[in-house]
């Protein structure tokens, strides 16, 4: 299949829309004393993620592969460890094979870090930021566990096959679900989350969902309960807008999380990932801080139109078209 990129029909209108959007964002951070930074888009390590794949590239010719960033997280943490203070970045981010109504393999990401605050304090700031673009919402804060309980009547920390099979009858394809469960609970929970829970989040109010299972929060500090970590996500009308953490800054623990993550990847038949030792070495110098990454294309699409059915196509300047 061959694709070509074509101008969207309302290109001019969209140019101005993006321009005003960027301006407003920069003003917000300027006022709050953030430094705008740019970090490399092509890096020597693939993103350390169980379910996000980096796009491979060969900037030096066909020697060792490099990777397009899936987020500028590692480089920004390096700056923070060097004492940068509060920083933000607007950058393209790239994720292999993510294409859909609300996904694109190339998208605009806003990522920012604030020292000396935990994730709850950062959520307040995310709320202030989103209020600029989604002015009519009320806010709801719930935990991952509460969301499962409230919307599905299930407890993600108390899985038993019979109860879940009955409660999720509409979603249950026996062989498929058994297969998802074979390497632990997380992949199965993602399935339930994606199809049964996420569409319900942020429908009435902007939803801040926090305290994910540790295994789903590789870069977040552990919570005192020992089973969840200080990670949050923000949902609006069923669309995930942002993902943040009270950042893990213990090198030893980070390394252990990477091992666990690679173990899951191996079981799932995915390539194991090389660890960035430099990142691990500097992590102990990372000050206590919280950070968040926010999908700008999604935010702009929902800012443009409530209940947006067109998704990212409503804001992209160039669109992928199959070439005949």
């Amino acid at each position: 299949m061959v694709y070509t990129l074509v101008f969207c029909s309302s290109m001019r209108e969209r140019l101005f829309l993006w321009h005003a959007f960027f301006k407003k964002i920069r003003f917000f951070f300027e006022e709050r004393g953030y430094l705008e930074v740019q970090t490399p888009k092509i890096v020597p390590y693939a993103a350390m993620e169980a379910n996000i794949e980096s796009i491979t590239t060969f900037p030096m010719g066909l020697a060792e592969p490099f990777f397009l960033i899936t987020s500028p997280e590692f480089a920004m943490k390096a700056l923070l460890a060097q004492g940068s203070g509060p920083i933000f970045q607007i950058t393209p981010a790239f994720r292999e094979k993510e294409v859909g109504r609300w996904h694109h393999y190339e998208f605009q990401m806003l990522e920012w870090y604030k020292p000396a605050v935990d994730h709850h304090q950062l959520m307040e700031e995310v709320q202030d930021f989103l209020f600029l673009f989604l002015p009519n919402f009320k806010v709801e804060k719930i935990t991952y566990q509460q969301a499962f309980r409230q919307h599905l009547g299930l407890d993600p920390f108390q899985f038993d096959l019979a109860t879940w099979r009955t409660a999720l009858a509409d979603l249950w394809e026996e062989n498929f679900c058994q297969n998802l469960l074979k390497n632990g609970l997380d992949v199965f929970l993602d399935y339930v989350f994606g199809f049964a829970l996420q569409p319900k989040l942020g429908q009435e109010k902007l939803c801040f969902l926090s305290d994910f299972p540790i295994s789903q929060a590789p870069f977040s500090k552990k919570n005192p309960d020992g089973k969840t970590a200080a990670r949050f996500e923000v949902f609006y009308q069923g669309v995930e807008l942002a993902n943040g953490s009270y950042e893990l800054n213990n090198s030893q623990e980070q390394k252990q999380r990477f091992f666990d993550l690679n173990l899951l990847r191996k079981k799932e038949g995915k390539k194991e990932l090389k660890m960035d030792e430099e990142f691990l070495k500097n992590l102990n110098s990372l000050p206590n801080c919280s950070g968040v990454a926010l999908g700008l294309d999604r935010l702009l699409a929902l800012h443009q139109q409530e209940k947006n059915q067109a998704g990212l196509d409503s804001v992209l300047l160039f669109q992928r078209e199959e070439k005949k």
Partner: peptide, 10 residues
């Protein structure tokens, strides 16, 4: 295409 942020894609 459905994919929770850091989760498995379907």
């Amino acid at each position: 295409f459905v994919k929770p942020g850091k989760g498995q894609a379907f």
